[in-house]
Write a protein that binds this DNA or RNA. Structure first.
Lengths: 162, 162
DNA sequence: GAATTTATGTCAGTGTTGTTGACATAATAT
DNA sequence: ATATTATGTCAACAACACTGACATAAATTC
């Protein structure tokens, strides 16, 4: 007969690992809900939101910059980017040093829309931060960063510390 | 001229809110990568994974149980569930008390496949937990739970504390 | 017993987002 | 002069979500 041994790694048991997996699923499910609802009223979707977001955060970024950040294919990006440019949410300027590059910027219209979309997620996250408190928030960042692929952590750090 | 006032809510500034939004995006992006790769070799996708996962976690659950947990439409669920049954990953028994219900269970084949898929996410989460430590993990849970819609938190709690 | 509600299934159509692969162009680098 | 790079474009396809309508069988209510 086996005795239950006390051990210090209680947070690494199957149960706790499942909890992380499930909370990630449920949190992400709801996290995307508010912007998705706004987007559903336009001809845009979640992919457009991501492009708006990251162009807003990194004005002057290029197509290949977005590709490596979003990790989708050129064709997927090209489609949504084209629609955003066509509808006047994003402008492109050719690169100063390398004229093949297209430097991407939000127009005023793009900024306004991004702001509206972000507001819903900002409110949700702010409320969660408030309820959980600063120490919990630090832990939240720490674990999430370590869930990211090891090779990608530098890129992510550069992004979030901007 | 405005002076910078010290305040205790540093973790609620725009910068920290953006950090949460971005980490959630990047972590979830990579979190789904390993199972997606395995699934790509079969005719299944992420939706099948979710169904396998939650049926495995809640043996004997019903179609409506899954619908409210996953928050997708009947038609979306019906399609993937049908394929999983057809291919012998899930069996259904009619309910004992209510014979309209279909109680869902993983077959041995289903269990084996779920285990394989889960292993990749379990390893990733275990590694992240280890690197971040138990206090961080507690914070991670706390914030994620509060990101979930308020009305859904009870359901989620019931699920993760099973 | 009749009427309603519930649990589930199914069909047809649509839209977004991802994929692959092939090919094109212009600019930069060697 | 040639190769590489940054980007664009076209066609085709698959997964997964949606809506709306209709069907059936079982349970519940009047």
């Amino acid at each position: 007969m086996q005795r239950k041994l006390p051990h210090s790694n209680l947070y690494l048991r199957e149960e706790e690992l499942r909890r992380g997996v499930e909370l990630l699923y449920f949190a992400y499910r709801d996290f995307t809900r508010d912007p998705d609802e706004i987007l559903a009223e336009s001809r845009f979707g979640r992919a457009h939101h991501r492009v708006l977001y990251f162009v807003g955060r990194n004005p002057g970024t290029t197509v290949s910059g977005l590709l490596s950040l979003l990790r989708i294919t050129k064709q997927s990006l090209s489609r949504v980017l084209g629609q955003l440019v066509e509808d006047g949410y994003i402008t492109q300027e050719s690169g100063l040093e390398d004229r093949r590059q297209r430097l991407l910027y939000l127009t005023d219209k793009g900024q306004a829309f991004e702001k509206e979309l972000f507001a819903t997620q900002r409110d949700r996250v702010a409320e969660a931060y408030k309820r959980a408190g600063p120490e919990a928030v630090a832990g939240f960042w720490e674990v999430l960063l370590n869930i990211v692929d090891a090779e990608e952590r530098d890129t992510v750090l550069r992004q979030i510390e901007k």
